[in-house]
């Protein structure tokens, strides 16, 4: 598995031309997701598959559709400094690995300090089987709030960069419906059947995250993918009519606020920020309520931001084609 990853990365250096690079990036994402499964990191694998092999190549493709797929030959003289830098950094990293606890050892400090509490007590303290969700949504919920704000920031940043003038900040583009999509009838029919299931699956992932791999982030990505698929096949104007950009932008902020205000509720109840035990008489029930609420916030914010980013890029593509 790791060797395949190395091969992909080397191919990425060798290959010139952006389309091939994007395909390789996607392969790299999928391979690392598979590697994560062998490392027992199922939640991470799920996310990496959705992001590394899904959203990220999609955005790259949209970009390349706008800026062109050609890549100029690099200057051989410019290779010396990078090679030197990479060698020094790599050597330092190798030195760093020499005193590391050996791979997979159950006695490594990372396995004996802090983490055991999550494994042994989260069952009683939080009451849900997926320990990753417990840590993510409760023990380290503040990191996750930060993560939502990161993705929200990305949405704001993309809009700031790409928003066309005179649309009140929205990445709206409303050219006439393009005719050239007609040959895709089969795809359109198939996807019409597929998309409802994707959206349904998104909801399943959203609310199943406590028991199995999944949660708000993955659900948001899947939901957004369904909408984007619709947009790719039926054209941006159609999908913009179904889900107008300003609504999505408001939802992005609302998602982040749902998360934040859940924390503020605990504050108002006299407990610390994001201490969900304040949300119900029974602490474990409180944890449940809190986790469902913040996962909902995550799902809404992530889906809305990804759709917003897609609108912004696709809008650029449209204005270019005209």
């Amino acid at each position: 598995m790791l060797c395949l990853l190395v091969a992909t990365a080397i191919a990425l250096i060798a290959v010139r031309g952006l389309l091939a690079s994007i395909m390789l990036t996607s392969v790299y994402g999928l391979l690392s997701a598979s590697f994560f499964v062998t490392m027992d990191a199922v939640d991470v694998a799920f996310t990496e598959a959705a992001v590394g092999a899904g959203v990220s190549p999609l955005l790259l493709l949209l970009t390349v559709a706008i800026v062109g797929r050609r890549e100029a030959a690099s200057n051989a003289r410019r290779l010396v400094v990078p090679l030197l830098l990479v060698t020094v950094t790599g050597a330092l990293l190798i030195i760093g690995t020499l005193d590391m606890p050996s791979f997979g050892s159950p006695d490594a400090p990372a396995q004996t300090h802090v983490a055991p509490r999550y494994l042994q007590q989260s069952g009683d303290e939080i009451g849900i089987p997926n320990v990753v969700t417990s840590v993510l949504a409760s023990y380290r919920a503040y990191d996750t709030l930060g993560e939502v704000l990161v993705i929200f920031t990305a949405g704001v940043a993309v809009l700031l960069a790409l928003a066309p003038a005179g649309q009140g900040g929205s990445a709206r583009a409303e050219p006439p419906a393009p005719e050239h999509l007609a040959p895709h009838t089969i795809l359109q029919v198939v996807s019409k059947l597929l998309i409802p299931f994707m959206l349904l699956f998104a909801f399943y992932v959203q609310f199943h995250g406590e028991y199995g791999p999944g949660g708000g982030f993955q659900a948001g990505v899947i939901f957004a993918s369904g909408i984007i698929l619709y947009g790719l096949l039926y054209g941006l104007p159609t999908v913009c009519r179904v889900i107008p950009p300003p609504v999505v932008e408001v939802l992005a902020a609302v998602g982040a606020l749902i998360y934040g205000l859940t924390g503020v509720l605990s504050l108002l109840a006299g407990k610390n920020f994001l201490d969900y035990s304040a949300l119900a008489a029974d602490p474990v029930t409180g944890q449940h309520i809190g986790i469902i609420a913040i996962e909902l916030g995550v799902g809404i914010a992530v889906a809305a931001v990804i759709i917003t980013i897609y609108y912004a890029f696709a809008g650029r593509l449209h204005t270019r084609e005209d």
Binding site: A41, A115, Y118, V132, L136, G146
Partner: peptide, 9 residues
């Protein structure tokens, strides 16, 4: 589980 959480972020 902790590295998993960190990497999700």
């Amino acid at each position: 589980p902790l590295p998993h959480v960190l990497i999700l972020t």
